[in-house]
Amino acid sequence: MTAHERDQLAAEYVLGTLDAGERAEAARLIEHDPEFATAVEQWELRLAPLAEAVGPVTPPRSLRQRVVDYIGDDDASPDDPTRQFDQSHRMSISRRLAGMRIAAVGLIALAAVALSVFYALREPAQPGAQYVAMLSDPGLDEIGYEATIELEEQRLLIRSLGPKPPANKSYEVWLMYKDGRKSLTLGLVERDPSEMTKLPVKLKAGDLTGKVTLAISLEAMGGAPVGQSMGPLVFAGPVEQQ
């Protein structure tokens, strides 16, 4: 492999355009070819600043717990056995954790029921509370938007994770309830949302507690004309207090 070919392969490995086979070959080269490994490091440094421009998305709290469960909650010495595993041992642990996660699904479902009861019964949230919803495609569970509502400031941020409203159509945001309350429109999704906007209606904590879903519907340009969703729901997710 010439220096030019090595550099090109390293660049495309870092950029991510290689297919699975090519990536596997590049990963093998990183382990065995120091010059290629150096080329990869250089490309990581060149392109990494692009990742700065990716907006943060709050991960679910359960993820932190999973990571902490693995690492442990208390400080330990550098000789801590959890740090001494070789790769195969770690893979084995990962597989066992995966199995445990599957087994935990039933428990999680139970916990979800318990939590929903807890949220329904507890006192209304404090005025400064923040609520978030990860809005996914109902069919594929692929997240398209992240929504944040700041109750005290009465502000809403809808951040796109990729999708944009189709041409000549609008995406409209709704609060929807399973207890018979009328849906509330929170306005249209900006084509390139980047900052918090004032909510079009005054929301109280009670509007966001219980079984509340934040949803985005596909509407004619300008939104639903009668304050009621007319088009299909394209993204939806439960509202959760942070």
Partner: peptide, 23 residues
């Protein structure tokens, strides 16, 4: 974690896959 999750979910689009990657 919010930054890394943002990177992962932008590429993968799926919550469960992004969680696995960040994990």
């Amino acid at each position: 974690s919010a930054k890394l999750y943002g990177v992962a979910i932008r590429i993968l689009k799926r919550r469960e896959l992004a969680e696995e990657v960040v994990h």
